[in-house]
Design a protein around this nucleic acid. Structure first.
Lengths: 133, 133
DNA sequence: TATTGTTATACTCTATAACTATA
DNA sequence: TATAGTTATAGAGTATAACAATA
């Protein structure tokens, strides 16, 4: 398996997916990063845990959470034991929004990747082989 | 095939790939967007074609190209027929840099996705099925 | 002393609208 | 009139360094 073919397939899929995120985010008046946070949020993560999950610096989380908090999508909750820690939770509004965002992103992904032609299938073959074989 | 499982697999892969881009870009003192442009650049695209390929607005290309041009990675060339059009070409420095970036990104992708355990393989199964089956 | 979240800073990315020079 | 690239603007994402509160 050629590393570059695999890399090219990964890169192509990444570009396509970025476009889907941008489209869906736009429909909800949010950014790609905001809906990614929204969709992957589970439990009551701390800011540091969130930064690790999203693969970015912790300092970004403050602003990201602030903007979503301002919209009533999520909220800060103090940790019960360690008073340095703030935990992030979805509000009810946030849960409903997440449900709609997930549904639309799911549909967009399904439409884009659900039924590929032979050409695209060949394009992604190195990736399919790596992930599945 | 559940749309959400597929979407979750796509989202997971997208997050992983974003991290790889960020790491590699960092090693070269560039941004993720810059190495993505660098790696997908082929031929002598106009600014508009570049914007379409990258899935962003044309106004972003000006700055993106300016910053890479300042580093000697690429250059503007006037179109021979239509004087409104500028075409983007790699310099020799740019070709060498692209070669190194591609090699490192290829290696990073290979290391990350080349040999997955059964757990991750299951995680990506919906994607493998969609892209390959 | 170490860690958590925050702030200040600087830069990049991003889209919209208005502009210019060409066509 | 229409199109290609640019500029101005505003907002968002990003990392580094320094900080206050807490452990």
């Amino acid at each position: 398996m050629e590393p570059r073919d695999l890399a090219a397939a990964v890169a192509a899929l990444h570009r396509e997916t970025s476009s889907l995120y941008a489209e869906v985010a736009r429909d909800f008046g949010l950014t790609s990063q905001q809906i990614q946070l929204l969709c992957m949020l589970t439990g009551r993560p701390s800011f540091g845990e969130l930064a690790a999950s999203l693969g970015c610096d912790k300092t970004n989380i403050t602003g990201l959470v602030n903007r979503l908090e301002k919209r009533g999508v999520l909220a800060r909750e103090p940790d019960t034991r360690d008073r340095r820690i703030s935990r992030v939770v979805l509000t009810e509004t946030g849960e409903e929004l997440r449900e709609r965002v997930r549904r639309q992103f799911g549909a967009a992904v399904q439409e884009r990747f659900g039924r590929l032609g032979p050409e695209e299938r060949a394009r992604y073959a190195p990736l399919t082989a790596a992930l599945g074989g």
